[in-house]
Simulated scan of single mutants.
Amino acid sequence: MSENQAKSNLVKSTVKTCRDGFDRHHHMVTPVAEYSGIGWFLVTFGITTRPSKIKYTCRKCNEVIEESSSKEDLDNNT
Rank of each mutant, 00 (worst) to 15 (best):
S2N: 14
E3P: 04
E3F: 14
N4F: 13
Q5G: 10
A6H: 10
A6T: 13
A6M: 08
K7I: 15
K7M: 10
S8K: 11
S8E: 12
V11Q: 06
V11I: 15
K12S: 11
K12M: 08
K16C: 07
K16I: 11
T17E: 04
T17M: 11
T17G: 08
C18W: 03
D20L: 13
D20N: 08
D20H: 04
G21D: 04
G21P: 03
G21N: 02
F22M: 06
D23C: 12
D23E: 08
R24C: 08
R24Q: 11
H26I: 05
H27K: 14
M28T: 11
V29R: 01
V29E: 01
P31I: 00
V32K: 12
V32Q: 09
A33E: 05
E34V: 08
S36R: 06
S36M: 00
G37E: 14
G37I: 03
I38E: 05
G39T: 01
G39D: 00
G39N: 02
G39Q: 00
F41K: 13
T44D: 06
F45S: 01
G46V: 06
I47R: 06
T48I: 11
T48K: 11
T49N: 03
R50C: 01
R50N: 06
P51C: 07
S52G: 09
Y56P: 00
T57S: 07
R59S: 02
K60Q: 12
E63I: 13
I65W: 03
E66W: 07
E66D: 07
E67L: 02
E67S: 13
S69H: 10
S70F: 06
K71D: 09
K71Q: 14
E72V: 07
E72I: 07
E72Y: 05
D73G: 02
D75S: 14
T78Q: 09
